[in-house]
C-alpha cells in the first residue's frame, strides 16, 4: 500500500480530517464536533478515515491546522488555516481567486494569484458577527436547530432586514420582528443576508470568488445570496468544509511546492 498523508483542521466547531495519497488524490474524509479534547477528536477522525479508506496505513506525515493545531499529538507540523484553505482551493481550481471562508468563529478572505501564491489575507474583527456563531445564536433565539436554517431561508417569500452589526443587537432586533409577527422564514433569510453583508464589508472580492467552510457547506443559500450581491457566480470547491484539512494533507505530502511554485 502506498504512502498516506494526513491533514487535520481543528476548527472552533468541528474537526475535519483528510487523507491523501502521494499524488494528492483524496482517499478519505472524516468529521466530528471538535468537543473539548482536540487530540482525542483528531485521533478518532483519523481512525474513521483510515477505515473509510479500506484500512489505509498510518500516515507517513501529518500537518495540523485550525485553532487547535497545536493539540494534535500525531502531527509533525502545523500551518495556519489561511495557508491550508488557500492550498486546498488551489488544488481544486488552479486559478487566481478570492476565497471566502466562513467558519464557526471567524471569517477569512484570502487572495491567491494565478500561480496559487497568496497575495493578501484578511480576517474578520474579533466580533463574531457574520460567522457561524452568529447563525447559532439566531437559531437559538428562534428555537430552531442550526440544520433547519437553510430550508427555512429557501422558503422565505420576503426578507426581514437585520441592520445591526453586533450579534447581540441583531438578536434584539429579531425579538422586535417576532413581536411584530414577521415570518420566521423571512428572519432566517435576513440573518443569511446579514452574514453576506459582513463578508462584503471585509473586502472588494475581485475576480473569481470561492466559498468554503462549514457555514456555506450546510447553507448553500448563503452562497446564492453572495452571488446575487456580487452579480456573478460564486464557486464552491468539492467538499467546501474540508478545504483546510485538504490543504494540510497536501502540505504533509510535500505537494505545496508543486502547487505553489516560487516566482522565477
Amino acid at each position: 500500500m502506498g504512502a498516506v498523508y494526513c491533514g487535520v483542521d481543528i476548527g472552533a466547531s468541528s474537526t475535519k480530517l483528510v487523507l491523501v495519497g502521494a499524488d494528492g488524490r483524496v482517499m478519505a474524509r472524516a468529521m466530528e464536533p471538535s468537543g473539548v479534547d482536540y487530540a482525542a477528536t483528531a485521533r478518532r477522525c483519523l481512525e474513521t478515515a483510515r477505515q473509510a479508506a479500506a484500512g489505509a496505513a498510518e500516515p507517513t506525515a501529518t500537518v495540523a491546522t485550525g485553532y487547535g493545531r497545536d493539540n494534535v499529538d500525531f502531527a509533525q507540523e502545523t500551518r495556519t488555516e489561511i495557508h491550508c484553505h488557500g492550498l486546498g482551493c488551489w488544488h481544486d481550481l488552479r486559478q487566481a481567486m478570492s476565497i471566502v471562508d466562513i467558519g464557526g468563529q471567524d471569517n477569512k478572505v484570502i487572495h491567491l494569484d494565478e500561480n496559487g501564491r497568496r497575495r493578501e489575507f484578511r480576517m474578520n474583527r474579533k466580533c463574531a458577527a457574520g460567522t457561524g456563531a452568529f447563525l447559532e445564536e439566531v437559531a437559538l433565539r428562534l428555537a430552531l436547530q442550526v440544520g433547519d436554517l437553510n430550508a427555512l431561508a429557501t422558503m422565505a417569500t420576503e426578507s426581514v432586514s437585520l441592520g445591526s452589526f453586533c450579534t447581540v443587537f441583531a438578536k434584539t432586533e429579531i425579538l422586535a420582528h417576532l413581536r411584530r409577527g414577521s415570518p420566521v422564514q423571512g428572519i432566517v433569510r435576513g440573518a443569511f443576508e446579514s452574514v453576506v453583508a459582513r463578508i462584503v464589508e471585509m473586502d472588494p472580492l475581485e475576480g473569481t470568488v470561492v466559498a468554503t467552510g462549514g457555514v456555506v457547506a450546510h447553507n448553500p443559500m448563503i452562497v446564492e445570496i453572495l452571488a446575487a450581491k456580487l452579480g456573478r457566480p460564486v464557486v464552491m470547491p468539492t467538499a467546501p468544509q474540508f478545504t483546510g484539512a485538504l490543504g494540510a494533507a497536501l502540505t504533509a505530502a510535500g505537494l505545496h511546492e508543486q502547487t505553489r511554485p516560487e516566482p522565477a
Binding site: 485553532y67 500551518r79 495556519t80 488555516e81 489561511i82 495557508h83 471567524d106 474579533k126 516560487e262 516566482p263
Partner: peptide, 23 residues
C-alpha cells in the same frame, strides 16, 4: 477584553507563511 489571542497568533503566523521563500 478587546484582544483575541487566537486570531492574533494566527495572523502573525500567516504573515510569516506568506513571505517569499517560505512554505
Amino acid at each position: 477584553r478587546l484582544y483575541s489571542e487566537e486570531q492574533t497568533r494566527t495572523q502573525f503566523e500567516a504573515l510569516v507563511e506568506q513571505l517569499p521563500g517560505r512554505r
